[in-house]
């Protein structure tokens, strides 16, 4: 009968409409800003830097591997130099990631031999300044290991186990501070949950003037 197929199709839509009143499988959308989905543990967004304990004690040693490997080249690192001798110390003076260029590919986190850079889960970032607004400096990127544990618990436990093992192997002498603690321009307070809206208090850094020592 002509029209049979159309009637069948309409039955499908009717069935779906009725089912959507009591079957959550049929109603997959959520009211976004009020409701949020819980992200899976592996979910990734932009990279951040991990520190242990205090923000001075960051894991990054400014080896620049991530800078070389980053496919869109959004990482910019400068090594800190000792104020008296001028020798490089193993920590970054400048560590910038341009979130507007970053494509969340996780390669920096993969290649980092010190487990210093990891992937964040905050996805609600927007700005009005196209060039400087999404440029995150070291202060904005630093986040504690506890924050990392909250976000990716399994992965963080693995990383901790690996780090403590390598520490035992190396059995380092009493750690002495390598350099004077740097003052942070703006260390944002650790965010309580990954799904909280980002604090708008992260001021964008001024544009980096091109340095000649790269």
């Amino acid at each position: 009968m002509l029209g049979n197929g159309m009637i069948q199709g309409l039955l499908v839509t009717a069935r779906n409409l009725l089912r959507s009143y009591f079957d959550p499988e049929c109603l997959t959308t959520i009211q976004y800003p009020e409701e949020r989905r819980t992200l899976p543990e592996n979910s990734r967004c932009f990279p951040f830097l991990v520190y242990d304990g205090t923000p001075d004690n960051l894991r990054c040693v400014a080896c620049k591997i991530c800078e070389q490997e980053c496919p869109p080249q959004c990482i910019y690192i400068e090594v800190e130099r000792d104020a008296k001798t001028g020798k490089p110390v193993r920590r970054p003076r400048v560590f910038d990631i341009d979130y507007s260029v970053c494509m969340q590919c996780q390669i920096c986190a993969e290649v980092c031999p010190f487990d210093a850079i990891k992937m964040d889960q905050i996805y609600e970032l927007s700005g009005t300044d196209r060039f400087g607004g999404m440029l995150m400096n070291k202060g904005a990127l630093l986040k504690s290991n506890e924050y990392y544990h909250q976000m990716h618990p399994t992965e963080a436990n693995e990383v901790d186990a690996r780090l403590s093992q390598s520490k035992k192997k190396a059995s380092p002498p009493a750690a002495k501070p390598a350099a004077a603690p740097i003052t942070l321009q703006s260390a944002p307070p650790p965010r309580p949950t990954p799904s909280a809206p980002p604090s708008p208090s992260v001021p964008p850094t001024p544009p980096v003037p091109p340095k000649s020592d790269v």
Binding site: E67, Q73, C74, I75, Y76, D96, I97, D98, S100, V101, F131, G132, L135, P207, V208, P210, V214
Partner: peptide, 11 residues
């Protein structure tokens, strides 16, 4: 276009 974090040739 000016990039905030230039590298190498781009720099």
């Amino acid at each position: 276009e000016w990039e905030p974090t230039p590298h190498d040739e781009v720099l």
